[in-house]
Design a protein around this nucleic acid. Structure first.
Lengths: 137, 137
DNA sequence: TTTGTAAATAGGAATGATTACGACTTTTAT
DNA sequence: ATAAAAGTCGTAATCATTCCTATTTACAAA
C-alpha cells in the first residue's frame, strides 16, 4: 500500500481527500514501522502549529477501517503503520525504533485444527526485540 | 499455578500475605480466563465497599512480576489471568467471556530462523474469537 | 504476647491516551 | 459559483492507570 493507492481507496469510497489526510498518509509512507498517534501529532504540529485530536484519531480510525493502516497495541498505546497488503504475514517489531520485519510464518494453518467448534475472528503473532540497526547504535 | 502455590511464592520472596492479596488470588482462581482490572475492582468493592486503585494495580503488577499472573493487552485494557506454568504455550481468547484454551503450537521455533542478528525479547501469539459456550448462548 | 518497623493500604489527585461535541470551514458535486 | 455534506477546530470529558502522603497492618524479634 503506497500513498497513491491509499488516495484511490479514499476516492473510491467517497471520502474527501483533504490536505491533512494526505499529510497523514505521507507521514506513514515516510516512516516504515509502527508509530503511535503522538508521533503523528508532533509531526503535524510542526507543520500547522496546532492540530485537533479529533482530526488525528478520526482519520487513524478511518484509515484502519479502510485497510490502509494496520494497528497494534503496544504497552497500552495504539500504534499504526501502512498496510502491507500483498500477502498475509506477521511482524517482528523493534521495541526501540518501531521498524518491522516480515515473518512469513503463519501458525494459524496448524492451530485452527485445535479449534473445531470455535469461531475464529482474528489472530496476532508478533515478535518483539531489537533490530540489528538499534543493536549497533 | 493455584492459590497455595501463589501464597508460597509470596512468602518465599518476603512479601506479606494480606487479606486483600488473598482475595485477589481467589478472584483469579475462581475465574478461568483473562480479566481486566475493572472486574477485580467490582469484585472487591462488593466485599469491602471501597478499594484503593493503588492496591489493585500494585498487586496486579507484583503478581505479574512474580510470574503468578499472565498479562495481555486487549483493546487498550490490560487483562490478567493465573499463570499456567507447566509448559510454554499460547492461547485462544474468547472475546465474549475471556475464557482461554491452550494452543500447543509455538511458531517461534521456525520463526527465529528468519531473525539472525536480531535480539528477540518476547513474542505473542493469540487467537481471538468466540468459544463454543458463547456461540450457543 | 507485646512491640518496633518496614510494608501495605486508603483516599484522592494527577497523568496520558483517547473520545466526544457544538461551532466553524473546506471539499466536491451540480 | 454555490449549497450540502463532510471535515476540522478547540476544548471538555472519559477511561484506565499512576502517583502521593497519611494511616494502618503483618510479621519478626524481644
Amino acid at each position: 500500500m503506497n500513498l497513491q493507492d491509499a488516495i484511490n481507496v479514499l476516492k473510491e469510497k467517497g471520502y474527501k481527500t483533504t490536505g491533512k489526510r494526505k499529510d497523514i498518509l505521507e507521514f506513514f509512507a515516510s516512516e516504515d514501522g509502527y508509530r503511535p498517534a503522538k508521533d503523528l501529532i508532533v509531526h503535524l504540529e510542526n507543520k500547522y502549529g496546532t492540530i485537533s485530536f479529533d482530526t488525528i484519531y478520526r482519520n487513524l480510525h478511518l484509515y484502519h477501517d479502510l485497510g490502509i493502516l494496520e494497528k497494534t497495541d503496544l504497552e497500552g498505546e495504539k500504534h499504526f503503520r501502512l498496510s502491507c497488503s500483498h500477502h498475509h504475514h506477521h511482524h517482528f517489531i523493534c521495541t526501540d525504533c518501531g521498524k518491522t520485519k516480515e515473518i512469513d510464518i503463519c501458525p494459524m494453518d496448524t492451530a485452527s485444527a485445535e479449534l473445531t467448534n470455535y469461531e475464529i475472528d482474528d489472530h496476532k503473532f508478533e515478535i518483539y526485540g531489537r533490530c540489528p540497526a538499534c543493536l549497533n547504535a
